[in-house]
Design a protein around this nucleic acid. Structure first.
Lengths: 340, 340
DNA sequence: ATGAAAGCGCTAACAC
DNA sequence: GTGTTAGCGCTTTCAT
């Protein structure tokens, strides 16, 4: 069956409200927008009329006249969408949505296709949104940085290129998180602590490497036990196997994310070693992988919902013309379980 | 520091394009909207002008004039947002976003606060969106059903109340999925197959119960080994403990989702029983819980991204006035691993 | 403090 | 096939 289109306007216009309240449209507009210079009585009358008529302002008209859209875009690269399975991204989206729910802004999710990135760029620049949040895993995705000149932009995750240091971004303090994780292993008496890190073109990979190295150096420990993965479980087992194959002594492992830690688990067990008996393991992300593994994984918890919220809030403040720090770093928290 | 507001319009108007192409605004509009009755040459000229000027249509103006918003809302109840951790929801969002990326529609994520549901209702009815997708876990959330009369609506998940049978919905075929899962256990030679199901005010809980019962009945098996959970891991262990405490023989278990199956694992192991040796287990959802558990969980895979895509497509077709089935059921697939 | 009036950029009859 | 002409519903000077 087919659907008939909706009948004319279901909702009354501002004009109807004005008529009912016995004032001009301009006044109704003022009341709706909370202008201070309207008599209390008039405000009351207008508000009653609004309630009686069940009036809802038309966004399109408002936007056209005011040249503001009240729309904030959340841009996710398609590749990110594919790894949407990563609960981290899901939480960011959730955080953004939650933070925006309390504002006048509407959340517009945009999946920017890799095949046609210009489409997204043009959409963003076409005056269709007041600002955008860009979340990405890979450095390349900061190709949007240029847009920052003409459209308020807030990035999730530190830009890789320092030339982008002029942009606003919110990030979890990866260096500190990795530092604390590694220090925890050191405090537990481990000395030969290996690192499985992520791609070095990704800030998360880089920064966690840095944190590990800082902690190790400060403790006067060797920083050469390093293997690289791509944040996937499979790459974690591979990396661990390579580490073990080297034949060097290892009694601790810091994996730059839980998925790789989970992968490392298999390799460690394969080798007939125990966790944490032979090798104490700490991961990063606090996702399900770590929760469900046995032994449960000690890991670094990231405020992922908080990250989304913070991004949204920074942008909203930016749009309001309020002063905002270009960099917002969110603290992490070590969650100690049985693997260390 | 504060941010200066953007300078005037960065993007040219349709009028500028018209001038440059030497035609009227109406013609440019026709070209932009793909009207068939424009000479090929004129189309070419206009398109060149558009490209030269880097013109992007203004959504607000277009929407105001056409009385269409080109916006589709994706409504998530706040409680759902909290269980956003559930990868299933994340995937639905992803599917919707992907499906909509190919259309002219824009995705507007709305988190409807439970404390003020009218805000969402008013927003939806205020002519701000062309249609809405409503995804919910709980039956009560179909409180939006009434809106279906005035706004094209597509639900994710079967409505609980049959009085809502007039609405459009897309769902995974839970009954069939549970049936197949249970039949699999039967085929493996299990006879005393318990069920841990979800709340019976949720279609997923209800339908999976139904599927299990159907399979059991058809095989002439007893259908009284039932415990209820709330889809959380904790409720799964509790339910399993209750089941085992009953003292009745159990050699198979169908859990209505993987999280509860994971919970059941602990209870089974606690009791000193083995999986699948003593009890073969099948879950439902195919999420990380099942993947990472040991032994890896046999489960029912749901096309969650597909569900989101299907919802979006149904709505788009609805909006286009094309005929659409009120009910769209998506097939599931049994993923056999080592737990059965 | 309030009203009148001029658009915002586009679409949709209606003419030609 | 193309141009003309009204608006869409709201905000925003500018008067008063």
């Amino acid at each position: 069956m087919t659907t008939e289109q909706m009948p004319g306007r279901v909702v009354p216009t501002l004009e109807a409200v004005a008529a009912r309240a016995g004032v001009s449209r301009a006044t109704v507009s003022r009341v709706v927008n909370g202008s201070p210079k309207v008599t209390a009585e008039v405000v009351a009358a207008v508000e009653r009329a609004i309630a009686d008529l069940n009036y809802v302002p038309n966004r399109a008209a408002r936007s056209l006249a005011s040249r503001r859209t009240q729309v904030i875009a959340l841009v996710l690269p398609e590749s990110t969408a594919k790894v949407f399975a990563d609960p981290f991204f899901a939480s960011i989206v959730q955080g953004v949505a939650l933070a925006l729910a309390d504002t006048e802004y509407t959340l517009n999710m945009v999946i920017s296709s890799e095949t046609n990135p210009d489409k997204t760029r043009r959409y963003l620049m076409g005056g269709n949104v007041d600002g955008a949040l860009v979340v990405s895993h890979h450095s390349g995705d900061h190709s949007y940085a240029q847009l920052g000149a003409s459209l308020p932009l807030v990035f999730g995750g530190r830009p890789v290129s320092e030339s982008e240091h002029s942009s606003y971004y919110v990030d979890v303090d990866n260096v500190a998180g990795a530092q604390v994780a590694t220090q925890h292993l050191i405090d537990r008496g481990r000395r030969d602590i290996a690192l499985i890190t992520g791609p070095q073109d990704m800030p998360a990979g880089l920064d966690r490497y840095t944190g590990w190295k800082q902690a190790m150096s400060q403790a006067g420990l060797d920083t050469s036990l390093v293997a690289y993965g791509d944040f996937s479980p499979a790459s974690g087992s591979d990396a661990m196997r390579r580490l073990l194959a080297d034949g060097r002594r290892i009694d601790g492992l810091f994996a730059a994310n839980d998925q790789m830690a989970a992968g490392a688990y298999s390799a460690i067990h394969e080798a007939g070693l125990s966790i944490p008996g032979d090798i104490a393991v700490v991961g990063y992300d606090d996702d399900n992988f770590g929760l469900m593994s046995s032994p449960p994984l000690t890991t670094v918890h990231q405020p992922s919902i908080g990250l989304g919220e913070a991004m949204a809030r920074v942008l909203v403040r930016l749009l309001a013309g309020e002063p905002v720090d270009r960099v917002t770093l969110l603290p992490t928290e070590l969650v100690v379980r049985q693997s260390s």
